[in-house]
Structures are given as C-alpha cells and as structure tokens.
C-alpha cells in the first residue's frame, strides 16, 4: 500500500525532476557548446522558451500520416522515458527499487526510441522514414556493447555477492565494483566505462551520431513532419533521456555519495546526495555529450554501424574478458 502511494507521488516527483533538469542540462550544454566554439550562445533558460513557443504553435498532421500513431507516439515517448526515472537511483534509492531491475531499464530505454521511430514512420514522409530507419539501425548496433557492459558488471558482482536482487540498480549502486576488483578488473571496468560513454551520445543521437536527424542532409529526419506540441513532446523527452542516460552511467560506475562525510540530519543528506548526483550527471553529460559533439563531425550511418559492430564490440568483449581474468587471478 505504501509502495502504491510512493509510486503515485514518486511519478509526479520524477516527472518534475526529469523535465526541469533535463531542459536545464540542455540549456547548459548549449551554452558550453557555444563557449567552446567561441560564441556567446543562448541563455541557459532557452530550452524552456523553445518548448513554450512550440506549444503556442498549431499542431499539423500531414495528409498521408496515420493520425492515431502520429499523435500518440510523442505522448507515449515522454511517458515511458520519465517512467525510467522511477527505477534509477538519483543519489537516493530509486522509488520502485524492489519492483524492477537493470534489464527492465534497458528495455524501457528502447521505448522512447521506438516511439520516435514509429512516429517518424507514421508521418509517411520519405525523409522521416529514412531518419527513422537510421535510428533503428543505430539502436541495433549499440545494443551489443551496451549489453556486454551491463552483463559484465552484474556477472562480476554475482561472483562476489549471492544476493537475490543483484540485477536491481539499488544493489549495484550500493556495492560499487571498483572497490572489489584487482588490477585486471580495474582496467576492464575502465574499458567498459569508455564503451558506455561512447554509447551514451549514440543513444541520445547527438553529433557525431545524429544521423537520424541530420538537418543538413535529410531535413530534420524523423522529426521532419512534426510540429507544435508533438515536436515539443519529443523535445522534452530527448531532454529527459539525457538525464536518464547520465544517471545510469552514474549508478553503474560512480555511485559514491558524499553525505556520509557530514553529519547532517537525514533529509539534508537526501538533498546533499541529490545535489551531488546532479553534479555527477552534469560531468557525464559534459564529457560524453558536450565535448564530443563539439569536437567531431557527423559520421555516415554505415560507418556508425560498422564502428559499433566491430571495434566497439571487440573493446567491450575485451573488457568482459579482463573482468573474467580478474576472477581467475
């Protein structure tokens, strides 16, 4: 019963956190990106203004589009992406920590992408279709390294602990792996972290992996026909997804908290942990989104597919092997 109440209130809470901080991070990212290019850039609150403007506009549905899919997908996309935050620790334990685990988070992470793809397809525009199929190709390509990373970490944990909830993010965050492995393990973990940091911008389809949108090439790609509030929904869900990816990286690799070094009352601890989480998430986003997208140019889709299927996959398997070696020696 308490859990029911918790999930209702928690849902409202994560909706607020996800949307506000997602848009905020987006603003910061744009600002820093501009600074790195020696520009002034928009104000940090610009994403909020963008959303507001999109909501004022008329919502156009193209003639050939399948309306019900076309209009439903933006909403479902945002709903599903926010729901991931119910399972991800953000400094404090996740709200539904005992009701879902890491594999669930992985699958939920697919949902917003699938919604975007279906929305793009449903708009019946060739540009949108091309963009959507590229997004799908990227999804299938990064799945292997991502799965290797996650399974490797959990497998290594299961060699140390025999708890029945090893797959929950709560458990993984409470037992950081860095402390429990030898030299090989640390190298292996570092490699896996690198893989995850490569996968993050691909998951978020940011430059250099923004082939699905690629304004200069296919006119906005899978969002080509979207306008008004539908586009606004996708805009917000992209922002929330950034927070989600960052918090997954944080939970898997940097779950450390700083509240135990102070002696404040518990609710202050929560605030401190949450603030520290926001800082860690910011660092992750800065490293794997802002810096990367400033420094590289867009790749072609078959280059991305090849890169993910061969070098990145091999790297991730090497990481797994090193973790395995760590249990032997």
């Amino acid at each position: 019963m308490i859990l029911v109440l918790k999930s209702v209130i928690g849902a409202c809470l994560v909706a607020f956190i996800g949307i506000v901080f997602g848009l905020l991070y987006k603003g910061i990212d744009r600002k820093l990106h501009a600074h790195m290019q020696m520009r002034v850039g928009p104000p940090v609150t610009q994403p909020f203004k963008d959303v507001r403007k999109l909501f004022l506009k008329e919502n156009l549905v193209p003639e050939n589009a399948v309306d019900w899919v076309f209009n439903l997908m933006p909403v479902i996309s945002l709903v599903s992406v926010i729901s991931i935050l119910l399972y991800v620790p953000m400094g404090v334990d996740p709200i539904l920590s005992t009701k879902g685990d890491l594999i669930l988070v992985l699958y939920l992470l697919m949902l917003p992408a699938v919604c975007m793809i279906l929305g793009g397809f449903a708009s019946s525009s060739p540009y949108a279709t091309v963009g959507a199929q590229r997004e799908m190709v990227m999804m299938i390509s990064y799945e292997f390294p991502l799965a290797v990373t996650i399974i490797a970490i959990v497998w290594r944990l299961s060699k140390i602990y025999s708890a029945s909830n090893i797959f929950t993010l709560q458990f993984i965050a409470a037992h950081p792996l860095w402390n429990n492995v030898g030299v090989f393990g640390v190298i292996g973990l570092a490699i896996l972290l690198a893989v995850l940091l490569i996968v993050t911008p691909i998951e978020l389809s940011k430059i250099p992996f923004d082939v699905p949108e690629a304004e200069t090439e296919i006119a906005g790609g899978l969002l080509a026909e979207y306008s008004g509030k539908n586009l606004g929904m996708f805009y917000i869900s992209d922002a929330v997804k950034t927070v989600v990816m960052a918090s997954i990286v944080v939970a898997l690799f940097f779950p450390y908290n700083i509240s135990q070094y102070f002696s404040f009352p518990q609710y202050v601890d929560y605030v401190i942990d949450f603030a520290f989480f926001l800082f860690k998430a910011f660092v992750v986003i800065f490293v794997s989104v802002t810096v990367v997208r400033t420094s590289f140019a867009r790749l072609k889709i078959d280059q991305i597919a090849h890169m993910l299927w061969v070098p990145v996959t091999i790297t991730s398997i090497i990481g797994l092997l090193l973790l395995y070696l760590d249990t032997v020696f």
């Binding site: 709903v79 009701k99 879902g100 509030k229």
Partner: peptide, 30 residues
Amino acid sequence: YGVWSALYWLLGLVVLFIIVYFIYSLGGKT
C-alpha cells in the same frame, strides 16, 4: 537475481500519462 512487477510500472505509467497529457493539452490545437 532480479525482480519485475508490471502492475507498479503500469500505475506509474498511468499517473505519468495524466501529467503528460495535461501538459500536452496545454499546447495548440491539432
């Protein structure tokens, strides 16, 4: 080694859907 409950997720989803749909309905007409 893990756990999954569809019902809680659906509950969260319903709540989120109401919130998001409220935001969605603030936008311009279709």
